[in-house]
């Protein structure tokens, strides 16, 4: 009994130290990554290539996600609002929830599933086939060559994709409002504008809601790239290891995105909402 307790305590201690070590390694990678972002050499061609992979190639799923999210939001809220004869406010609901919350989060989750998994798998495969070691032996820093382009591309493209998702979601809501609820386009769009104007503007024309909505994908892009590359670079154990690293990257990034979203929302509310 006593030996079983000792064994359990040892396992717990090892697991704790394992997690602590992983966290330490993660932040060490982030520190190196940030340092490498502001010093030469820059791999411009790789950054553009990654912007294509992360941004352009994710466009289709982001458009689909935005469209159906906007349509479902409008449809679900219509059921409740019809009871109070408040369907004219559907644009407010779709606009606010999409721009502030659903656009950034759903885009980040979808891109993580597609591009984040791809990053972890690509770097993981390079790791197990000694290509990462080959980079090192040629005097090339793998963080600078492999991680920085993905990181920069992600923080550039995630906000762009989020704007696309927001626009398409609002359009999806418009479709439902016009086709199913017999609202006019003008009424719906004014309702959307009113909710965005409610929080105020920065520089007289940039809605604060939009700023909030774009601060998040910036953070989510950074988290996705750093976490996916971290798991990719830690890959061991052949092809099975690549699969494991990919799964871990997607799960951890998704959890981090949702958790960071909460804390960012708190911070942004304190900063912008009077």
């Amino acid at each position: 009994m006593a030996s079983a307790r000792r064994s359990a305590a040892r396992l717990t201690r090892n697991a704790f130290f394992g997690i602590a070590l992983s966290v330490q390694e993660y932040f060490a990678l982030v520190a190196r990554l940030l340092k490498s972002c502001v010093s030469r050499p820059f791999y411009r061609r790789d950054i553009v290539q990654q912007m294509d992979t992360i941004g352009v190639q994710s466009l289709f799923i982001v458009v689909l996600t935005g469209l159906f999210t906007g349509m479902v939001l409008a449809l679900q809220s219509a059921v409740e609002m019809e009871r109070f004869g408040a369907t004219i406010y559907i644009g407010r609901l779709v606009g606010a929830s999409t721009v502030r919350e659903l656009g950034p989060v759903l885009t980040a989750l979808m891109v993580t599933g597609r591009a984040g998994a791809g990053m972890a798998a690509a770097i993981g495969a390079m790791k197990v086939t000694e290509q990462v070691d080959a980079l090192r032996t040629m005097g090339v820093d793998p963080v600078r060559r492999l991680v920085v382009p993905r990181f920069l591309a992600a923080i550039i493209m995630l906000p762009v994709l989020t704007i696309v998702a927001d626009l398409v979601a609002i359009f999806g809501g418009l479709l439902i409002a016009v086709v199913k609820l017999d609202l006019t386009t003008e009424l719906y769009m004014r309702s959307v504008y009113e909710t965005l104007a409610q929080s105020g503007f920065i520089l007289k024309f940039i809605p604060i809601d939009l700023i909030q909505g774009l601060a998040k994908p910036l953070a989510f892009g950074a988290i996705m790239a750093a976490t996916s590359c971290f798991y990719g670079l830690r890959t061991s154990g052949g092809t099975e290891g690549v699969g494991r690293a990919t799964t871990q990257a997607v799960v951890t990034t998704s959890i981090l995105v949702l958790a960071v979203d909460y804390f960012l929302t708190q911070i942004l509310i304190v900063m912008f909402v009077q």
Partner: peptide, 19 residues
């Protein structure tokens, strides 16, 4: 170290060519 590695050439067991 990165500069020192430029003075070496390494041939890996699996070749490690960039896919």
């Amino acid at each position: 170290v990165l500069q020192l590695r430029e003075r070496m050439g390494m041939v890996f067991q699996g070749s490690a060519l960039f896919d």
